[in-house]
Write a protein that binds this DNA or RNA. Structure first.
Lengths: 231, 231
DNA sequence: TGTAATCATTGATATATGTCAATGAAGAAT
DNA sequence: ATTCTTCATTGACATATATCAATGATTACA
């Protein structure tokens, strides 16, 4: 419930706008601002659901969200989205459908912006278009790493990768407090919850990691890196 | 060695240009044409190698190529590229590096075009940029299907998916002659060559498939679809 | 403040899948 | 033809991983 002033901001003054918008002028930001909704989500709430039409893209302004594909009986978490980052699915330029679901992991707030406005700006502003393509490319590279980790590494390597992802990319500290569940950790690593927990236990026993509830600390980064690399 | 006249064509007259170029004017095509190389590859030859700098993108004009990530001890085939389709890796907009390798599966020919020209056209022609983004989006959707198949389906389902991919997307006939090896089939399906062969054998025994050397025929499409869906 | 509900943990077990080794078949080269 | 090399096939075996079931811990809640 903090951050209420955000409701009154416009995009041009927004202190926490996504870096994708840096190539936009104030007039262009005003365009975005006009088609914008500010929403709050409680932890666990669905932001959008795979298969539904997508008319807006989502910019997470506080909290933490996950995007995940609902597959055959289980979920694959594609990424965690933290402030200030945005969710722009591949369906927007194809058939305006969501190809994955998104939900709030922590209590979160987000801005929703009409994708038509976004597409218009892509056409009219080459810098913006290029930034967007760069962003799509980075996502693809991330997908590549992910698919190789998931298909060619054994569980230890995959958990190691997930731990580095959480520590380095999401929580950005080393003793870090995870706000995701063990099931989420398993859905990131493509394994069962039970297996994920067992690997954590092994890492603890080998002194690579300490786990106290949701507080994790990677003690032996070098060894964990090696586990990540040897699969 | 057929198709020699291709060497003398320019892009504007090319009968087999990739659909990505349909939004370009003759002048713009001439720009592409100027920075273009026509190359022939023998089956098995490497077109480019993961990790090397990428200055040109590749448009396959005859034959068949594969793009594959060289992972931890084995390869993952991301896609087969048939005429007329092009290979434009995600590194082009990031650091001009190849993030996967490409090689010719059959004797092939290709045009190489400077990526700088491509990027210039993306900036100057909004239709072209949008077509390109659409294409990137489609690739992402394909990646999603692939990662779900590879991580959430058992071997039977993955081989079923690979067979449909070959029959419907690549060779586009039902009794189809594969020009890829069993190892390639395994690298598409994310399993060992031996496992892939065993699954094929089971499908044969159940009357779902006939396999005579490299000639495949899917006999019971409905059943194979179901195997694909039940994982 | 207890009761339900969810989440985390652990053990036992079944099985999907990879690895290794051996053999057969099909081309390529001499 | 004959040898050599690559590719395909099969079997035996080891093991990585999921599933199921039970229990403990934590949180929501009324």
């Amino acid at each position: 419930m903090n951050g209420k002033p955000l409701f009154f901001l416009n995009c041009a003054d927004c202190k926490c706008k996504s870096s994708i918008f840096k190539s936009l002028s104030d007039e262009e930001l005003e365009l975005i601002n006009k088609g914008r909704f500010h929403v709050t989500y409680k932890a666990g709430e669905i932001i959008f659901k795979q298969g539904t039409p997508s008319s807006h893209f989502v910019c997470v302004t506080s909290g933490l969200a996950k995007i995940y594909i609902e597959g055959y009986g289980k979920n694959l978490i594609l990424a965690l989205i933290k402030p200030v980052d945005y969710i722009f699915g591949p369906g927007v330029y194809i058939d305006n459908k969501h190809y994955y679901s998104a939900s709030a992991v922590e209590d979160s707030t987000a801005c929703l912006v009409d994708t038509l406005i976004f597409k218009k700006l892509v056409r009219s502003n080459a810098d913006f278009a290029e930034d967007f393509i760069r962003r799509l490319s980075n996502q693809t590279l991330f997908n590549f790493e992910q698919v190789i980790s998931l298909t060619q590494k054994q569980m230890h390597g995959r958990i190691a990768d997930a731990l580095f992802y959480l520590s380095e990319k999401i929580y950005c500290t080393n003793p870090f407090n995870i706000t995701i569940s063990r099931q989420d950790l398993a859905d990131i690593s493509g394994m069962s919850k039970e297996s994920a927990i067992r690997i954590l236990k092994e890492f603890k026993e080998e002194g690579i990691l300490t786990v106290d509830g949701n507080l994790f600390e990677i003690l032996n980064i070098k060894q964990l890196k090696q586990i990540s690399e040897t699969g």
